[in-house]
């Protein structure tokens, strides 16, 4: 069970983030989670949005290089050690995390959501099965 993530290539120059978020805003796209990975010359903006297809179309229209990747959205208890236990589980199952960031969404207090891409999402899903809840695209949209 995975969700769609948008990755946008952005050069390191003033106004890029403003430009991209503006494109999403005028198209009525809500951002549910995001992260920015950066190097000296460029960055990758990763987004979970409420309407991935519409967002992709809008970004392409705006001349952005954008790709869609499947990532896992995992629910963890919002308390000390909550993340540590999930990571231990992945480690025990020999799964490496490529990148990970936290989401803005939360149904109720005491829970947090993480967006995660593993070297093998299938293996990660198997590791989490029965122990952690993974959001589906539909669940994500309903939140």
């Amino acid at each position: 069970m995975s969700v769609k993530q948008l990755s946008i290539f952005a050069e390191n120059r003033p106004g890029r983030l403003s430009n991209i978020t503006h494109l999403l805003a005028v198209n009525g796209i809500n951002i549910r989670a995001m992260s920015v990975a950066d190097t000296k010359d460029f960055g990758i903006l990763r987004l979970i949005v409420n309407d991935a297809d519409k967002a992709v179309a809008a970004l392409r229209e705006g001349n952005c290089a954008v790709t869609v990747t499947s990532v896992l959205a995992i629910r963890i208890p919002d308390r000390p050690g909550g993340l540590a236990a999930a990571m231990q589980l992945l480690y025990d199952n020999n799964v490496s995390v490529e990148y990970m960031y936290s989401a803005f969404i939360s149904e109720k207090n005491g829970e947090a959501y993480l967006i995660l891409r593993a070297d093998s999402n299938e293996k990660a899903e198997q590791a989490f099965e029965g122990k952690y809840h993974l959001l589906s695209q539909e669940e994500l949209l309903a939140m």
Partner: peptide, 15 residues
Amino acid sequence: ELTEEMFSDTIRSIE
């Protein structure tokens, strides 16, 4: 210019 065909999700692959 980076095209979508060239672009994958990770920094490593772009580098």
